[in-house]
């Protein structure tokens, strides 16, 4: 299986992506912001359209910058509304998600009706397919992994602290805003890079499901991440294997199915699960 170049690249790509998404997903999960991944993923569309309108070409770098800006805008809009109103977090996420996506659709149809012949395939930026990850994608994903791992090693403790006790952080003189900015930046980087490689749904899934799996086994952050990583890497292997063996089997969706399999297993057997079938006694 591994002697096929495509398979190898896809496997490395999705495993690195699993690492990125699981790690950053866990910190978002701890802040009960799992669905942020979904929001950011949809908020990217207007950014892509705007940068196309300004530059009139489908240059990856410009599209990426546009995507990054509206992604960031969506996170800040959420925070802004949250600080100043009594609306529920889920309501705010819903408002921001649908507003940005609506804006994206408006811009997309506007561009379509202007008759730019270059425009077609603009929304392909959002529809990456795991089976056609390129070596260039893998390089970008790997550099995100590198940045992510270094940041986590340096600042991991602060990321945990912000989820549980942000008041303490500000007491000891650390700016929670700065920490939050770093987490947001990492989240958007992970998502934007991931989306054009594997698509919205897979990205959302590997940001949301592995932390939930980890949480079913442990409440310690480092263990949640480790178990989440184990599950997402295992699912990547399963997904790639199925897609490698059977024709017409899309890689990404099968990875999601694998993840849900791991999740169900953890729901039944996880030590922290409220539905576990066996009680493992501590001796």
């Amino acid at each position: 299986m591994l002697n096929s170049y495509t398979t190898l690249i896809v496997l490395i790509g999705v495993i690195l992506l699993s690492i990125n998404c699981t790690i950053i997903g866990t910190y978002n999960y701890l802040q009960k912001k799992s669905l942020l991944a979904d929001v950011v993923a949809h908020s990217i569309l207007p950014g892509i359209c705007l940068s196309f309108l300004l530059t009139q070409e489908k240059d990856f770098l410009w599209l990426f910058i546009g995507a990054f800006i509206t992604g960031m805008a969506s996170i800040y809009t959420i925070d802004f509304i949250k600080r100043a109103s009594f609306l529920g977090e889920d309501t705010i996420l819903g408002i921001v998600l649908s507003f940005f996506f609506g804006l994206g659709i408006v811009l997309l149809t506007y561009i379509q009706n202007q008759g730019f012949s270059e425009q077609s395939g603009l929304d392909n930026f959002l529809l990456g397919r795991a089976a056609s990850i390129l070596i260039s994608d893998v390089k970008i994903i790997a550099s995100v992994t590198l940045i992510l791992v270094v940041t986590i090693i340096l600042l991991g403790r602060l990321f945990v602290a912000i989820a549980f006790d942000s008041a303490f952080l500000s007491q000891i003189g650390i700016s929670t805003k700065l920490i939050q900015l770093i987490i947001s930046t990492l989240t958007i980087m992970t998502i934007t890079v991931g989306i054009q490689a594997v698509g919205i749904v897979l990205i959302a899934a590997i940001m949301i499901i592995p932390p939930a799996i980890g949480r079913l086994w442990s409440y310690q952050v480092s263990r949640i991440i480790l178990i989440g990583l184990l599950a997402s890497i295992l699912s990547s292997l399963i997904g790639v294997y199925i897609s490698y063996t059977f024709p017409r089997s899309p890689t990404g969706p099968w990875i999601v199915v694998g993840l849900v399999g791991c999740f169900l297993f953890s729901l039944l057997f996880g030590t922290q699960s409220s539905l576990k079938v066996f009680e493992i006694r501590k001796i």
């Binding site: 799992s34 899934a205 499901i209 939930a212």
Partner: peptide, 9 residues
Amino acid sequence: IQADASIGI
């Protein structure tokens, strides 16, 4: 399971 995560899953 946390509300946001169960929706996502």
